[in-house]
Nucleic acid binder design. Sequence first.
DNA 1: AAACTCACCAACCGCGTTCCC
DNA 2: AGGGAACGCGGTTGGTGAGTT
Length: 240
Amino acid sequence: MGRSPCCEKAHTNKGAWTREEDERLVAHVRAHGEGCWRSLPGAAGLLRCGKSCRLRWINYLRPDLKRGNFTRDEDDLIVKLHSLLGNKWSLIAARLPGRTDNEIKNYWNTHIRRKLLGRGIDPVTHRPLTHAASATTVSFLHPAEPPKTQPATEESKPPRCPDLNLDLCISLPFQQEEERPPARACAKPVKMEQLQQGGGGLCFRCSILRVRGAATECSCGSNFLGLRAGMLDFRGLRMK
DNA sequence: AAACTCACCAACCGCGTTCCC
DNA sequence: AGGGAACGCGGTTGGTGAGTT
């Protein structure tokens, strides 16, 4: 049994994308918008599987990608968000305009991870490597800053989130809706998307905690982690 | 100059979740 | 309600270029 392949692999290209393939993909997405990845290759005249097209567009061809080196601010933000969210690269990417989850993941594994290890910090737990089981937390504000000690009772709480300033509003949520192509070629019913629209909607806390009866607007006034639900794809966080 | 090692990153793969019939 | 299709995510792989021996 098992899942059927996402595409007819025998008739699809693999490996690096050519300039012509890129151009075809960009032209198609500009004309029809994102989505319907399954049918896109045929419609765009590409011998690629839909997944591959999606990846190529999201990670490389999207016009709003920043490219270039990560700034120190981005660096710090990634570390903070990772200590908070773990390997939820898509959630982290949602807070870094112009960066993709794949890019951040690669950057983490090649740079930040090593940097933290060099500082004696476990990149998984964000705690000092030599005292992994202790109740010590780490500050990301300055490498030389000595770690603070917390009461032992704190140990019973979830291990993440060292002395984070939970006001994560370093940047505005990235939105270019007005510049995006109109509706998807085969527009999906909204439902979840409606909940993710900016402006009103659920606060981040309510959306995570699945507050019932708050499908359109919560009135708790909460600004959980400084985030509103519409700012990021909260589905992954809610689910996992 | 050749061989080898390492780092980087684009792309692939498998699986979980959501949506639709 | 259940099953299958499609999507999205995170882990992993493989190609390539730079650096070192």
